[in-house]
């Protein structure tokens, strides 16, 4: 099954290798891994999706913590969270064949971000199933996909705002917990219910 971990790590050379090497050593495949800055200077946030046995979560998390550069790990498995992925898809299209792709993009709430005489580029954000849905529809309508670039999953728990970074670094945040935010407006409804699969 897929496990999703959010790890806050020190922003130093070699830290990515250490994390990646851990999965290699456990013979676990990394499905996707995204890294970027967090809300705190010097701390990076990784979202790691890996395919491992259902019971492997504890061991992966415990092993991640054994890396000196790892500050905090969260196994977001069943937790309520917002999950997103960004994809850029380049599709072969001439002025004559463009219009139905525009329609598809509209349905999927994707955007056309580049237009060339023989191709166009779609930007789409959403859960993986939505992106895969668009790719599938493009394939089924005989549009030739030239390139796909996907960021991999990034997730954030819903509600209860406390800076996990500050928490990890043992800095009292001084903020009270905010009210749980109302359902993320369009997100889940659009993606899970409305869309053609």
């Amino acid at each position: 099954m897929l496990h999703t971990f959010v790890a806050l790590v020190e922003d130093k050379p070699g830290v990515l290798t250490r994390v990646a090497s851990l999965f290699r050593r456990l013979n676990i495949n990394i499905v996707s891994l995204t890294v970027g800055h967090s809300e705190k200077t010097g701390v990076s946030r990784m979202t790691i999706v890996s395919d491992a046995s259902p019971t492997a979560g504890h061991r992966i998390m415990a092993s991640l913590y054994k890396l000196e550069n790892v500050l905090q790990v969260d196994d977001v498995g069943q937790a309520a969270c917002v999950s997103r992925e960004l994809a850029l898809i380049k599709v072969a299209a001439t002025p004559k064949t463009r219009s139905h792709i525009f329609e598809l993009a509209e349905v999927f709430r994707a955007r056309i971000v580049d237009l060339a005489p023989e191709s166009l580029m779609i930007e789409i954000t959403g859960v993986e199933s939505k992106i895969e849905g668009l790719i599938q529809v493009l394939n089924e309508s005989d549009d030739r996909i030239l390139e796909i670039s996907r960021t991999g999953r990034m997730v954030m728990r819903r509600g209860q705002h406390t800076s996990r970074v500050l928490d990890a670094m043992r800095v009292p945040s001084g903020e009270s917990e905010s009210e749980p935010i109302a359902e993320d407006d369009e997100a889940e409804i659009t993606e899970e219910a409305d869309l053609p699969q």
Partner: peptide, 8 residues
């Protein structure tokens, strides 16, 4: 002392 050893 090592949580990674539990249930390994």
């Amino acid at each position: 002392i090592d949580p990674a050893e539990i249930n390994k």
